[in-house]
Amino acid sequence: MAGTEEIQQPTSEIAFQSKFRWSDMIRVDGRINLRGCLLLVTGILMLVNLYMIFMVAPTDAVLGHVQRIFYFHVPLAIVSFVAFLAVFIASIAYVFRRETKWDNLAHASAEIGVVFITLALVTGMIWAKPVWNAWWLWTPRLTTTLILWLIYVAYLMIRSYAPSPSKAAIYGAAMGIIGFADVVVVYFSVQWWPGIHPTPVVGPLADTGSLDGTMRSVLLFSMLTFLALLTYLIMERMALQDTVDQLRGIRFSLRRAARQDAIPGD
């Protein structure tokens, strides 16, 4: 992408960028900084969440301390489903409305959904090793989740390989709509093909009484925390996409201007 912009960076610019004030997190130029506030709240929630997980939640009677991975593993998976639901809805909205903001929401949600589902898989493996005695087993739950991961990684790759932004948006929308079916399959997989993976503790398949009361409260708190994190990350990623679009727009008009200059008499 490096082309016309290979101008030397003035050092004063960098100095300007690195100046950071805590008050900027809440207010910038007299306006409330929504993203900054959300980051602050999310950060506090994440610290409180750690306290809840290690100090408030009881130790599991069978698995011992390692069961505390549960408070990260389960919310990570559920929140990635929420992110993919956002991709699904935004993709449908884009197909009907053809507005860039819907495509940006779908793109941002898919990228962050991939981050969350990757972590759900990794924490799951770390939990499985001491409990199941294996890092990975080709059970339906794990396999369908890996397929889910692959679908959304492919979504991101297809977008970046597409010949133009509007093609990327429409390929993405198609994948975002079809791909969501696997989220449903992943959720119901433990009921359809029972195996070694525990059954859900949240949602329609949850078995009441499968979870200690305090554990349920800590889990709910953790899910809230991760939802806040998801919202913050999506907003930050969409802001980045706005900047990318802005830069593309400027470059495009510069290029058009240069071409018109080059053709005399036009």
Partner: peptide, 17 residues
Amino acid sequence: DTILVKCPSKYRSLEDE
């Protein structure tokens, strides 16, 4: 040649137990 362990989908507090 391989032993796996399946745990119940029930989480209970050690103190209660």
